[in-house]
């Protein structure tokens, strides 16, 4: 997967541009959407607590892999949502899910040696979509492009807000 910073910058770019047309979508909501982009990265918890350790503790088969799938994003977004005030739930859930989806889509574009991305639509389907193999996860070009676009959007956003 792409690095977490790139994952966070993509919804920042998309939601900030959207905020120029949607009145309620201010910076505090953009940040909520960015948070959702981190959900698929939570699969890296395996570095700290390995799947096999959890498996041994529970006595059940176990993998963190669903965290970087559609099912994992939809459920974890629900978990994040209930931490907010009840009146914001619908908005928070939509934004967090959107952020998570942007990360899944971005990861679906990266290189796989057999030409197919992971089954990120799980559990709705086990199908592995074809990937255009645009980048590898450690390619700094992806982050540089994301930073440049995010910087340009931040400057434009500031000008638009100053004008309004």
């Amino acid at each position: 997967m792409a690095d977490l910073l790139t994952h966070l910058l993509v919804p920042y770019i998309l939601l900030t541009v959207a905020s120029w047309r949607v009145d309620w979508l201010d910076q505090r909501w953009v940040v909520v959407g960015m948070g959702g982009a981190a959900i698929p990265d939570l699969v890296k918890i395996g570095i700290v607590l390995d799947d096999s350790t959890v498996e041994a503790l529970l006595g059940l088969p176990f993998t963190y892999a669903p965290l970087s799938t559609l099912g994992g994003v939809l459920l974890f977004a629900g978990l994040i949502t209930v931490v907010f005030e009840r009146r914001h739930w619908r908005r928070v859930y939509g934004l967090v899910t959107f952020g998570g989806l942007t990360s899944l889509l971005l990861d679906g574009l990266r290189v796989y040696a057999d030409g197919r991305a992971s089954a990120w639509l799980y559990p709705f389907t086990n199908w592995r979509p074809p990937t255009p193999s645009l980048y590898v996860s450690s390619d700094p070009t992806v982050l540089v492009v994301a930073l440049l676009v995010a910087g340009a959007v931040a400057v434009l956003d500031r000008r638009i807000r100053a004008r309004d």
Binding site: D51, E55, L60, P61, F62, T63, Y64, A65, P66, T69, G71, G72, L75, F76, G78, L79, V82, Y122, P123, N126
Partner: peptide
């Protein structure tokens, strides 16, 4: 939600 997520973790490994 945690229970459902846990179920998904187990189901994914089994399948």
């Amino acid at each position: 939600v945690c229970l459902a997520l846990g179920g998904l973790f187990v189901h994914a490994e089994v399948t």
